[in-house]
């Protein structure tokens, strides 16, 4: 890791060291994994924001994640997870978790965007990690949706299903549906690897490719169904349910009509 070219990545060597130290000291195997390559944007973070974030954190997050974000028995360490992870987890309502679950579910966010920004500022002050992406990074207006589809089928569809409907994983975990994910959240999820999802840093999937993927997911979210009702886009399973209820039901109704005694 030491041979990372720091200047190109705009990432100080020290923070990698800090990250490693933090990980070893806390021994948090379950740490929400950070991208070693991510490029935290140095957006205008004020001291007041960090202060406000610390207050919110102490109130709402510290019972699981520890008073200094070092993690605890019920929550991973947040040192070095970066602002993007906070913006994603809190912005999609996954955090704070209402109760202990196998996996945090998407809900309506509890905090306002300003509060989320403050939390993110505080958490990224604990240790550098991927920053919240800039709108220009996830702007997909010039993206290639067909190429996005190819990369999606290569990297995403194995968990999130061909139509972004999500799918089951092992031990009660699941890949969530992408139908409500915003471009920013998709980008954040890729660079931070929330929950069980692998990290797809900008070095693994360049920003341009991420925009293509976002364009494809945007297509999936709005795609028409030329053939008629989509039955949830889950493949042959829901087609079977329809077949043996409505379709064969209708045919049997007709057979009963034909066979019934006429009066």
């Amino acid at each position: 890791m030491a041979n990372i070219s720091g200047s190109r990545r705009r990432r100080p060597y020290a923070s990698a060291l800090l990250l490693l130290t933090a990980l070893t000291t806390t021994g948090a195997a379950y740490a929400v994994t950070t991208s070693a390559i991510a490029n935290p944007r140095t957006s205008e973070v004020t001291a007041a924001q960090i202060q406000e974030g610390k207050r919110l954190f102490t109130e709402g997050c510290s019972s699981c994640h520890g008073l200094a974000g070092q993690g605890g028995s019920s929550g991973p360490s947040l040192i070095g997870v970066g602002a993007a992870a906070v913006d994603f987890q809190v912005g999609t309502g996954r955090m704070p978790m209402a109760q202990a679950q196998v996996q945090a579910m998407r809900k309506d966010p509890v905090y306002t965007q300003a509060e989320i920004d403050a939390l993110a500022a505080y958490v990224s002050s604990l240790g550098a990690g991927p920053g919240v992406p800039d709108p220009s990074q996830y702007d997909f207006s010039n993206a290639n949706v067909a190429r996005g589809g190819e990369i999606y089928r290569l990297n995403c569809s194995q968990c999130h299903n061909y139509a972004g409907k999500g799918g089951a994983l092992s031990d009660g975990k699941y890949a969530p549906t992408l139908m409500k994910a915003t471009p920013k959240q998709i980008y954040e999820a890729m660079i931070t690897g929330p929950q069980g999802m692998p990290v797809f840093s900008d070095a693994q999937i360049p920003a341009k490719d991420k925009q293509d993927i976002i364009a494809y997911i945007d297509y999936l979210q709005n795609a028409p169904d030329p053939g008629g009702a989509a039955l949830g886009r889950f493949g042959p399973v829901t087609e079977t349910v329809f077949l043996f209820t409505a379709a064969i039901g209708a045919v049997i109704a007709v057979t009963i009509w034909i066979g019934a005694k006429s009066r």
Binding site: R153, Q158, N161, Y162, G167
Partner: peptide, 12 residues
């Protein structure tokens, strides 16, 4: 052969 969708199922 190197791509797949979650929940790949055969016809009933």
């Amino acid at each position: 052969p190197d791509q797949i969708s979650a929940g790949s199922q055969p016809d009933w």
